[in-house]
């Protein structure tokens, strides 16, 4: 059986016989999605016939079920890893899978960046009469002038722009720093310096949380002082969708790193074998890079 085993005796490839977690996850996702749709209908005025709070409850039940599934599923994988069932081959598979997952996340953001660029380079200029759309301007939106950020929409909604060099810049510094600290943590892990590892990783998580808090402060500022909100035209739409989804990803990334921190306190990972940690830090770097694009195109230029 030499072919089917690593040199150290780990099976080359291990297929779990069957697993309860995927079906739990499918049901959880379904409950969440169904709840979310119902919740949204019940809580916005678009659908007058939908009232009640059942959607909200279903939605939160779904989220809890997803959390349950994740804990169970990852718990199982961690157990296998600790039992030495994860061969080098499977480690490779996990790595590649994580990489492709991040690619798909990049494309998700690409859709919203696409919307941003379309608005900035095409629809807003067109509404102001650029290119062959002069008649659009003359007949439909004669008072509209092109600006970016869009201070006044064609429909007449006013907003102010979010300044780049205040909180957003501080947040940029924070996030870039956190990318550095997570790298230091990785180096420490590879040198088996557990104390430094804990410190650097703890600092990273803390920076992530500070980022989120500042982001929250910024949102409050936008809503209460600037009149910048989701309904403030395409500027507000792209602003909140991009920063909002980014914020959601920071939350996810910080949670992943926090879980890694807990596992490190429990003594998991070795200098050679720490894929979960690396995956979380890749994700963190990805979140950081997205932010740099955000800072450049949403806030700065």
């Amino acid at each position: 059986m030499s072919d089917s085993h690593d040199t150290n005796g780990t099976p080359r490839y291990y297929v779990p016989h069957s697993s309860i977690w995927p079906i739990v996850g499918s049901i959880a996702l379904f409950i969440t999605a169904f709840g979310a749709a119902t919740f949204i209908q019940q809580s916005t005025d678009k659908v007058l016939t939908a009232t009640g709070t059942s959607g909200e409850i279903i939605f939160y039940v779904g989220l809890a079920a997803i959390a349950f599934m994740m804990i169970g599923w990852f718990g199982a994988v961690i157990k296998e890893s600790l039992q030495g069932l994860v061969s080098g081959l499977m480690d490779q598979s996990y790595r590649q899978a994580m990489m492709w997952f991040i690619v798909s996340e990049v494309m998700f953001f690409a859709a919203f960046f696409g919307a941003l660029f379309y608005a900035r380079l095409i629809s807003v200029p067109w509404l102001a009469g650029a290119g062959d759309k002069l008649e659009t301007h003359l007949f439909l939106w004669p008072d509209f002038a092109e600006t970016w950020p869009l201070f006044m929409t064609p429909g007449g909604t006013a907003t102010e722009a979010m300044a780049a060099w205040g909180l957003p810049f501080i947040n940029t510094v924070i996030l870039v720093t956190s990318s550095v600290t997570v790298t230091f943590a990785h180096w420490a892990l590879k040198k088996n310096q557990r104390g430094a590892l804990q410190a650097w990783l703890g600092l990273t998580v803390a920076l992530g949380i500070i980022f989120l808090i500042l982001q929250g402060v910024e949102y409050v500022h936008a809503y209460s002082d600037l009149g910048l909100n989701l309904s403030a035209g395409i500027y507000g739409s792209t602003f909140f969708m991009l920063t909002g989804f980014h914020g959601a990803h920071v939350t996810l990334g910080a949670t992943m790193l926090a879980v890694m921190l807990i596992r490190i306190f429990r003594g998991h990972f070795t200098p050679e074998n720490h894929f979960a940690f690396e995956a979380a830090s890749w994700y963190w770097h990805f979140v950081d890079v997205v932010w740099l694009f955000l800072f450049t195109f949403v806030y700065w230029f």
Binding site: K46, A119, S123, W126, T153, L230, S231, G236, S237, M241
Partner: peptide, 20 residues
């Protein structure tokens, strides 16, 4: 984007808000 245009007031696909 469809969802937020439907329920959260965004204007990705509405000219009045600068979208298309």
């Amino acid at each position: 984007m469809m969802l937020t245009d439907r329920h959260f007031g965004t204007s990705f696909f509405s000219a009045a808000g600068g979208g298309d």
